[in-house]
């Protein structure tokens, strides 16, 4: 990886854009909570607040806060002098970190291969692809990790982790 001066890299998102995105997400979250709360009565009954009361007002607090943060982002001077929040280099590094992580989850949960297979695949990928380790070292570390987890959780602590067809095929329950 070449050395880049971060400021030389192209800006991907300004601080303002990021702030607007965050506020919009918070707004959506608050609205969802309010919708969920409306399934129940939200009033103040003769014996105090009804089931929907707290969720409803907490949702409102999030909405009010989000609208406030949105206005701050759009109109306040605060971020005018900090135009760049994330540049292309940083975004790429974050994406390179998140992608294998997502792969871990997809492999473990969607393909139902379990945590052990997924952790070996994940460690191998990251060490070979991003860490530029040699295959033997990567193999040793990734399988070693799985083995340590297996001994600790399954045999010693008796906490079964999620397993898939590979373990069943190997006869490990």
């Amino acid at each position: 990886m070449e050395q880049h001066d971060p400021s030389a890299s192209r800006a991907l998102a300004t601080r303002r854009t990021l702030e607007v995105i965050a506020a919009a997400l918070a707004l959506a979250f608050g609205a969802t909570i309010i919708l969920g709360a409306l399934e129940y009565r939200i009033g103040w009954g003769e014996r105090g607040p009804e089931p929907g009361y707290f969720p409803f007002w907490m949702g409102m607090i999030v909405v009010v806060g989000a609208i406030g943060a949105l206005f701050e982002a759009l109109f306040a001077r605060r971020h005018a002098d900090a135009p760049m929040a994330i540049n292309a280099d940083q975004a790429r590094r974050v994406a390179l970190f998140l992608l294998p992580m997502l792969g871990f989850l997809v492999l473990a949960l969607i393909f139902k291969l379990g945590l052990y297979v997924a952790m070996v695949a994940y460690m191998l990928t990251v060490m070979l692809w991003q860490g530029r380790y040699r295959l033997p070292a990567a193999l040793a570390v990734s399988f070693g990790t799985a083995a340590v987890f297996y001994f600790m959780f399954e045999l010693w602590l008796h906490v079964p982790l999620m397993k898939g067809p590979v373990e069943a095929w190997l006869g490990i329950h």
């Binding site: 918070a26 608050g30 707290f54 907490m58 949702g59 607090i61 009010v64 806060g65 406030g68």
Partner: peptide
Amino acid sequence: SPFKTLVSAGMGFSLAAVGMD
């Protein structure tokens, strides 16, 4: 920002309310 504190606390309380009442 006080608005952001509101968002954060409100989210926490909302998440705590999920599930059996």
